[in-house]
Design a protein around this nucleic acid. Structure first.
Length: 279
DNA sequence: CGCTCCACCTGAACGC
DNA sequence: TGCGTTCAGGTGGAGC
């Protein structure tokens, strides 16, 4: 499912159920995810109070009183749902479950198992492989066009690949890269190292705008993404190019040029864009 | 080192 | 109905 806005939506959904709660029981039904659930996961989590929930890129971090953090990644198809009291039977892809002292049941499911649930000690984020090379958070105060321009310097790869590269900027995925490039009028095939500072500054602001709007909308629901209460996000209705191959470009329409949205494949992923508006 | 490709895994949608 | 193919919101290791 998830890029930054979907993960942030899930984090916010978890807050009322988890923050301050004690995790009384943990059930692990499958351990063989992208990274295996640690053998002693249950022992290290049961009885722990949750102090806070944070997010780094597409990872959710659940801080425990013990000084360890549960790290949750949703991969492509992961989801988390919260039930009250005795929930319905788990389905075959519900792999990890947390029960709290206020009788909440938090269920992590991931059909493709590209995601994972792991534990990391506070302070060891800097040596924890999935987090080590992550670039800046686009919604941080410090993130801006000048910073992004520096990170693009010397890159011969495409804008599309550069924005998908989590080491350059963290949290974006295929949807939001497509949408941000369209709104910035930047061609996805343009070489990242050749983008002007002026355009990079526009891009940085557009990225913030798109992510904030998407979070406001509860993320984008295509197949798997649900908010933790089961509700759909609705940012997919705001897509301008993603999944719109062949439809008229909304900017062109106004200029009476009416180009259509094109689809190409870059790095094995679909790119949607308007060859007239994006340069 | 920088970059591209491909595998990882399951299910849904589509064509025949 | 069934079967084969293609595609999917991510990541990171192999290979050039």
């Amino acid at each position: 499912m998830p890029e930054l806005p979907e993960v942030e939506t899930v984090r916010r959904g978890l807050l009322p159920a988890l923050e301050g709660a004690v995790i009384t029981d943990v059930v692990v039904r499958r351990r063989d995810m992208r990274r295996p659930v640690p053998e002693d996961f249950e022992k290290r989590v049961e009885g722990q109070r949750v102090l806070s929930l944070s997010r780094r890129s597409k990872y959710i971090l659940v801080l425990l009183e013990s000084g360890e953090q549960i790290i949750i990644h949703l991969g492509m198809s992961g989801r988390i749902r919260i039930f009250e009291g005795n929930p319905e039977e788990p389905d075959k892809h519900d792999h990890v479950e947390f029960i709290t002292d206020s009788r909440k049941c938090i269920r992590y499911g991931d059909p493709r198992r590209f995601g994972f649930v792991d534990l990391v000690k506070v302070g060891e984020e800097s040596i924890y492989p999935p987090l080590v090379k992550l670039g800046p958070e686009p919604l941080d105060e410090a993130f801006n066009g000048t910073m992004l321009f520096e990170r693009f310097k010397g890159k011969t790869t495409s804008m599309k690949a550069a924005l998908m590269d989590q080491r350059i900027i963290a949290g974006l995925g295929n949807i939001y890269v497509n949408e941000a490039l369209y709104r910035s009028a930047i061609l996805p095939t343009k070489k990242a190292g050749q983008l002007s500072l002026k355009k990079t500054k526009i891009l940085a602001e557009v990225i913030k705008d798109v992510l904030l709007e998407a979070i406001e909308a509860g993320g984008s629901s295509l197949k798997d993404h649900r908010q933790t209460d089961g509700e759909l996000g609705y940012f997919q209705h705001s897509f301008q190019v993603y999944g719109r191959e062949g439809e008229p470009c909304k900017l062109c329409e106004n200029n009476h040029k009416s180009s259509r949205v094109k689809r190409i494949v870059q790095q094995g992923r679909s790119t949607f864009y308007c060859s007239s508006c994006q340069r």
